[in-house]
Amino acid sequence: MRKLVYYIASTLDGFIAGPDNSDPTGPDGFWPIPEDYIQHLIAEYPETLPAPARAALSITADGTHFDTVLEGRRSYEIGLKAGLTNAYPHLRHLVFSRTLTESPDPDVELIADDPAATVRELKQQEGKDIWLVGGAELAGALYSEIDALIVKLSPMTIGSGIPLFSHKAVFEPRTWELTDHTVLKSGAAFLTYARRTPTA
């Protein structure tokens, strides 16, 4: 069965963006992107690079991890502000929103239904794993459905900002098993965790 994977960049203090929720890796962003980080993405996760980056880097590889990407409205609007109606045209792209009534792109599916129920349906379909790109509110709504975490841990702190999960997430402590890790010379670490199955 397909898995829902929260593949996300985080600071050491657990934030995925600054307080204003703008793109931390954009032209005015604060998040450094070292060369070895980019090369690791190209080699291991090419499908997670947005279309402009793929074009600039001449990337055509489909990738081996994901064929579907899920995004919340606020996260999606970061791309819209940059002029991108679909940052991931090479993937099936679903955006969860109850306020957007018409998709800005024919290949972006708007979903107003319950995210958890939608994900449970997606898991039953054939295909590669499902990438939860963010943001924090959607991750909070899908907390109980996340099967794996891939945290791109940046060697920086920012003090405050948007956390991995919104404060609306349920209080449900769970443990995760570290199944893979890569530490780059620049200091970034790619940490892969699988959700532990509770024992009776």
Rank of each mutant, 00 (worst) to 15 (best):
H40E: 09
K81G: 14
S154L: 12
A148W: 00
S75V: 11
G187K: 07
L57N: 07
D105F: 04
T179H: 02
R92M: 03
S166A: 15
L178V: 08
E109M: 11
P50Y: 02
H40Y: 15
E35D: 14
D114R: 08
L142T: 02
A116M: 03
G161Y: 08
N86W: 02
R196G: 00
A194D: 13
N21F: 02
G140S: 09
G83E: 05
A51H: 12
R120M: 08
K168Q: 15
A200Q: 13
G159K: 05
F171D: 11
I42D: 00
Y193Q: 04
A51L: 14
K81N: 14
A112M: 00
N21H: 13
P32V: 07
D67E: 02
I42M: 08
Y37V: 15
A51Q: 15
G134Y: 12
A43L: 08
G83N: 04
F96L: 09
L184E: 03
A189Y: 03
P24M: 10
T179G: 01
W176R: 09
P163G: 04
F96H: 08
I158E: 06
T68I: 06
P24A: 05
L184N: 06
R54K: 13
T48S: 14
A116D: 01
P198Y: 14
G83R: 05
G140M: 04
Q39C: 01
T64V: 10
R174I: 03
L4A: 09
L178H: 06
A141D: 12
E102K: 13
E44D: 09
L4V: 04
G135N: 04
S75L: 15
L122T: 00
V108E: 00
D13S: 08
G83H: 04
W176E: 07
L138F: 10
E35F: 02
H40T: 11
S58H: 15
T197N: 11
G140I: 03
Y193A: 04
V183R: 14
G187N: 03
D62V: 02
I38M: 13
P50W: 07
E47P: 07
P34F: 09
I16G: 03
A53E: 05
P155M: 08
P115M: 10
F30C: 03
S166K: 07
A61R: 13
I130Q: 12
G127D: 02
L142S: 05
Y193P: 07
I78W: 10
A55V: 09
L91D: 04
A148L: 00
I42G: 01
T157M: 15
P198A: 11
F30I: 13
V170N: 06
Y76W: 08
E44V: 11
R195S: 11
T60S: 14
S160V: 01
I42R: 09
A17K: 09
L138T: 05
V170I: 12
R73Q: 15
T99S: 14
A87S: 15
R54T: 03
S186K: 08
P27A: 13
L49E: 04
P173F: 02
S144R: 13
L41P: 00
K3Y: 11
E71W: 08
E145H: 05
A82K: 12
D105C: 01
K128L: 14
A139Q: 03
L49P: 06
F66H: 06
L142P: 01
F165E: 06
